[in-house]
Design a protein around this nucleic acid. Structure first.
Length: 802
DNA sequence: AGCACGCCGACT
DNA sequence: GTCGGCGTGCTC
């Protein structure tokens, strides 16, 4: 038997199947979708079996070295989905497979020198570095400068260089103890043990009392007061048996989830869920857009759909933008479905993610709630895929494979014959346009549950404030409301789209702005560390006291970051307790949730944060939401900036007054007349949609056109420009006249880490030749040699224009 | 990606 | 004359 294998080498030349013989020892064990270790040139690497063949067209086959799985980790569907994904996003097949598995399953490669003769026969200079198996890693060999000597020993046949493949994922083991003898024998033992062996007796007694299963060694120690050495002795004497049991790391184990059951649906919800349940029942594919205002009860529709799916013996995937932000969502799912839910998000450790994945793989759960990559959960009988907050950017992966979870969801659902639900209060234009054209079925929830009023939204014109002499970052109105909340002991959320302290430092005399020396972007002032930081490459610099250009001392900070607001707040209202949430305060694992919990329990009056607080926050005591500057996003060089602004403002506003207290929202802006801000005030999605569609039509952007972007980067500006020119003219020449090709243009951030970035954007409606053409461009321009530092990447349907 | 094989400059 | 630079091509 022959196995066709995709090897773990992400490169153009190896992006194809290699055939291997299955040795007799592995006959029958190897199946498609399994990871194997194969010899590849002089080394050993990991690979995925994609097919079993009777014979190969290649005649110098080598043998598969080893199998890494008992059960395939990628089933038939996922294997073929990987193929689809690599074609669709122009990525290597191996990258498509890798992205479907938890990081813990990526291979780890080792290169070791190993002694072939007894260690004593080797020179002392070497032998003293060897471990007890007579091994020394290649890396250590370099560090200790032993490579020459080692090389000689290898040629002399006294040592060899061995390549090994190991898995990063470690299954967590727990030490358990059980009685070696039967109860009767143990009772005898209790009598015969000497008086002073009190601890030993207690251990035996404890194990007798809890005989139903094995006992965790740590529990035994705690309960009996026995020391490790006592237990060791007992194991050695054969009284108790020690063994290791595989356990799951459960990130939610200390949490109690209150069991909840289905609510009765409102009439509107009933109408919405009907067509979905019909499709679930009929095993038919369909994409639904569930368009519901904030607080209209979309989640309950999801939950009841999943209920139906589970009762059919099928499984459900629910995607959320970034779950660690919404512990409340996890709670709701765990509460309703208990142990049948796996949770996958970036806040988990590698090991925890691995364990959650294994629960899915072993069919111990039938629901997964997770971020983008959870779309690849290895379920075999999908009954529904739900994407909550469908418009969120985080569903698009920005590095290879550059996939959009929405597209993958629809493709998977099509294969499984099940519906997809896209839920949002502010759907992306693409999705809404498809719903208008009946490509997706539109379901609307227009009323908030319990008929809560929408919060009242006020737009404050900051230019007016400035004219009236208010130069602070808080408008009088916001400040007034803020102090009012403090008096009433209610909570406020302040939203600002920028971390750090000040966005840039400018000289008032000559206009000099401090920029990163490696990137074409201005540096951000961080008060805490008294440093200037580049948010793109991490470069740090001292804060200038004098203008480097004109020596003037009139250096001023402009723009406002979260840190500065925090300072200002403590200055203005010293008694206010403020929690700041941004990337700088939430890098530590779990810190996110901790801060939110603290706020939820009323340990602070004001929650100040960036984007990350816009989602999922649902506390009854929040009655005021302030947006300090609604414009920051609006002026970004991105055709979606108006859409993003509208979505963000609508979403942030939804944080106020979700319960019985009425909420108020204050939005500060310098451009109050802009439609995205004006219409967010009244949450008129459809009006916004009409207006924005008009802009897109004029600008020839999605949803009227599809996009593909080619980005090149190189240290040499001339080189990037010339290659970009070549590619652009090639595209112009090969594509139809209906395609619009823009470029070459410098990327909005023209240089990052000393590499110049140029891009070419293709706007098209129908170009069947585009994919193959892009593929051939990748073929010709992708670095052939390792030191050709020209990097090219192609993003089909890009989201980030930067 | 690695690694080997292969063709041109500064060294024992 | 060789050691070693990295350009090119192969890995079942």
């Amino acid at each position: 038997m022959i196995a066709s294998v995709i090897v773990d080498v992400p490169a153009k030349q190896t992006d194809r199947a290699f055939d291997y013989r299955i040795p007799p020892s592995l006959e029958g064990l190897v199946r498609p979708g399994m990871r194997v270790v194969v010899p590849f040139g002089p080394r050993k690497i990991q690979g995925f079996v994609i097919a079993l063949l009777e014979k190969s067209s290649y005649d110098k086959l080598r043998d598969i070295e080893d199998v890494l799985d008992i059960v395939p980790v990628l089933n038939e569907e996922l294997l073929s989905l990987a193929e689809w994904l690599s074609e669709e996003t122009l990525c290597y097949q191996i990258s498509a497979m890798q992205v479907m598995l938890p990081a813990a399953m990526k291979a780890k490669y080792e290169k070791n020198f190993e002694a072939l003769v007894p260690v004593e026969q080797l020179p002392q200079s070497i032998s003293k570095h060897l471990d007890k198996e007579g091994r020394l890693s290649w890396k250590e060999g370099i560090e200790k400068k032993l490579l020459n000597e080692l090389q000689q020993l290898v040629t002399a046949g006294q040592m060899e260089l061995k390549y090994a493949v190991s898995s990063k994922g470690k299954k967590k083991k727990e030490r358990v103890l059980s009685l070696a003898a039967s109860s009767e024998e143990a009772l005898v033992l209790l009598d015969t043990l000497p008086q002073q062996a009190d601890k030993q007796k207690r251990v035996i007694q404890f194990l007798l009392d809890h005989q139903s299963d094995e006992q965790n060694a740590a529990t035994v120690k705690d309960e009996t007061g026995a020391s490790s050495s006592t237990i060791r002795t007992m194991i050695d004497r054969g009284y108790v048996i020690e063994s290791f049991k595989e356990v799951y790391r459960d990130p939610y184990q200390d949490r109690m989830f209150q069991k909840t059951s289905a609510f009765s649906l409102t009439e509107e919800q009933q109408t919405a869920i009907g067509p979905i349940l019909q499709k679930v029942h009929d095993y038919e594919h369909e994409t639904f857009l569930l368009h519901g205002v904030t607080g209209s009860g979309k989640t309950e529709v999801y939950l009841q759909t999943i209920d139906q799916v589970l009762s059919q013996g099928r499984q459900a995937i629910m995607l959320v933008p970034e779950i660690s932000l919404t512990p409340q969502m996890v709670e709701r799912f765990k509460g309703r479905f208990g142990d049948r839910v796996a949770v996958m998000h970036s806040g988990l450790s590698t090991g925890e993610k691995y364990d959650e994945w294994r629960k899915i793989h072993r069919k111990e759960v039938n629901v997964v709630v997770g971020a983008r990559s959870a779309i690849f959960a290895p379920f075999e009988k999908l009954g529904v895929v739900i994407i909550d907050e469908e418009h969120e950017m985080s569903y698009k992966q920005e590095d290879s494979p550059r996939y959009h979870a929405r597209d993958v969801a629809i493709e998977r659902a099509r294969r499984h014959g099940c519906p997809v639900i896209l839920g949002s209060a502010t759907p992306s234009l693409e999705t809404f346009a498809r719903a208008q054209k009946n490509r997706y079925q539109l379901l609307s929830l227009t009323r908030r549950m319990n008929n809560q009023e929408l919060p009242s939204v006020t737009i404050v014109d900051m230019r007016e404030e400035l004219r009236e002499g208010n130069r602070s970052m808080f408008s009088r109105q916001l400040f007034e409301q803020l102090t009012l909340r403090l008096e009433k002991k209610e909570q406020t959320v302040l939203f600002l789209n920028r971390r750090g302290h000040s966005s840039f430092v400018m000289c008032r005399d000559c206009g000099y702005v401090m920029q990163c020396p490696h990137c074409d972007i201005s540096m951000t002032y961080h008060r805490h560390s008294e440093q200037m930081k580049c948010h793109y490459c991490g470069h740090e610099d001292r804060v200038p006291v004098q203008c480097p250009e004109c020596q003037s001392e009139h250096i001023r900070y402009f723009g406002t970051g979260t840190q500065k607001v925090e300072e200002e707040l403590t200055k203005l209202i010293p008694e206010a307790r403020v929690i700041r949430m941004d990337v700088d305060t939430t890098t530590r694992k779990g810190s996110h949730e901790k801060l939110l919990t603290a706020f939820g329990q009323g340990e602070a009056d004001i929650l100040l944060g960036t984007q990350m607080i816009a989602k999922g926050l649902d506390f009854p005591n929040i009655t005021l939401v302030g947006v300090l500057s609604a414009d920051t996003m609006l002026h970004l060089p991105d055709f979606r900036s108006a859409e993003k602004t509208f979505q963000l403002l609508t979403q942030v506003s939804g944080r106020a007054g979700r319960h019985d207290k009425k909420g108020e929202v204050i939005i500060q802006t310098y451009s109050p007349e802009h439609y995205s801000i004006d219409l967010a005030k009244t949450q008129q999605f459809e009006l916004f949609y009409k207006q924005e569609m008009m802009m897109r039509r004029i600008g020839q952007y999605p949803p009227y056109y599809f996009l593909a972007m080619v980005t090149l980067s190189h240290e040499n500006l001339l080189k990037v420009v010339s290659v970009c020119e070549e590619i652009t003219s090639l595209l112009k020449q090969k594509l139809s006249n209906n395609a619009i090709i823009l470029g070459p243009v410098a990327s909005p951030i023209a240089r990052i880490q000393n590499r110049y970035r140029y891009q070419c954007l293709v706007k098209y409606k129908m170009e069947p030749e585009l994919k193959p053409l892009l593929k051939s461009i990748l073929d010709t321009y992708q670095p052939k040699s390792t030191n050709d530092s020209l990097l090219i990447h192609i993003d089909v349907q890009p989201y980030m224009m930067l």
